[in-house]
Design a protein around this nucleic acid. Sequence first.
DNA 1: CTAGAATTTTATCATATGATAATTATAAGT
DNA 2: ACTTATAATTATCATATGATAAAATTCTAG
Lengths: 233, 233
Amino acid sequence: MKKMKQAEAVEPKRTRLSPDQRRQDFIRKATELFSEEGFDGGTRELARKLGVTQPLLYRYFPSKEELIREVYRTVYIDRWKDSWDDLLADRSRPIRVRLEEFYRDYTNTIFTREWMRIYLFSGLKGFDLNRWYVGMIQDRILARIVEEYRHEAGLPAQSPPAPAELELAWVLHSGIFYYGIRKYIYESPVLEDKERVIANALDVFLEGISRVFGTAVKVRAAYGRPTAGAVSR
Amino acid sequence: MKKMKQAEAVEPKRTRLSPDQRRQDFIRKATELFSEEGFDGGTRELARKLGVTQPLLYRYFPSKEELIREVYRTVYIDRWKDSWDDLLADRSRPIRVRLEEFYRDYTNTIFTREWMRIYLFSGLKGFDLNRWYVGMIQDRILARIVEEYRHEAGLPAQSPPAPAELELAWVLHSGIFYYGIRKYIYESPVLEDKERVIANALDVFLEGISRVFGTAVKVRAAYGRPTAGAVSR
DNA sequence: CTAGAATTTTATCATATGATAATTATAAGT
DNA sequence: ACTTATAATTATCATATGATAAAATTCTAG
């Protein structure tokens, strides 16, 4: 008796999916895997998570490297909202309100274990992606914040903003960002009321720069070049 | 003729070192290697850097895991300065001066590619070390900053500081810390004048909280527990 | 219902990894 | 100079990895 003819739902051994579907499944599960294990997560474990065999991966991606690239794309680029531009530039509302709404939405978007971990993993790998992302933040978020602040405070427009001003905006942004790292990477206890943390940070920042801007903040040095061999290894 | 008897300094094939010396060499080179490659850096490459063979490692460390622990110890614990306690608590000097000096020294200590990268690698590995370190920062640096600020501002002493106050100090601290990440991890261009960046951040922070402290900052929620399974995997 | 294209599997390779046992060479003590 | 303890080596194992080729199964068009 080789086979017990139990009245089981005869699930086919192979689940055959459309190339598009399968490809997306790979990317989705790879995102899960890589966010936990890093990019050294094995292709076999990935296949196991999908319920398929390992060589199948190579029908959809020429190499693991390519799969990683795709994971990047979906995690970063696809989650970036162009609407943030307009939100921050909407001068019909006070900047305080705009900033609060932006950071609420922004942190809701990126404060996940997946996003945070993959971001750091990729940063450590030295891929260009992080430099690109940092550039995006600086050009499309921080520069705009500085600009909008200057406008609301009645200061002369200055474009592009002075490096020292951008660095100040970085302090605010990083302060909020690192809250996510403490919570989702280190899993340290944090004050759970995120909105409150953001609100306080904004209060201090806006109150603070109103005293410092245009006076203490001088352009003391130009932006430097990348510190070492800039491109990935 | 098997050997050319050139008048070479006959360097012995094996360099025999004292156990202590060799052990320290392993740790030092491992720090270099792991900071670049992550903890998946191979034991063979490590041996190559030392000019010895790979199995030798296992005379000094029972496992690679143990070696990693030692690397942690030297990088973090050994670089922590107890003098920071006194520096921050020295009420004969204004807090602005103390903070500037502290952050100058602190960033000089940790703003290196090695320190920063190993810190993030270990954070992603989920080791307790980062939670421990974050606790150190909070208890011995940030709590003290809040305390000292309250004292200088003539506010009533409050011990321990309210969570929301600590979170505000975290924003400042993280803002400065992330400058290092941008520079040494992402290798993005930054405003090279670090002292200026710190000075501006402190100005904004101190000006800002003078408006916000004791009024807007209320204790709205208690510190939460770690978000997920807290211990390393 | 059958043929054929396409998806998925099985089998396998080459290489790299952490770790152990047995052997060899070095430096110190007498 | 000879012995001896031990630092360092060679040889090797078991396992895991990314990747490829060929065989097998599934779905669909006609």
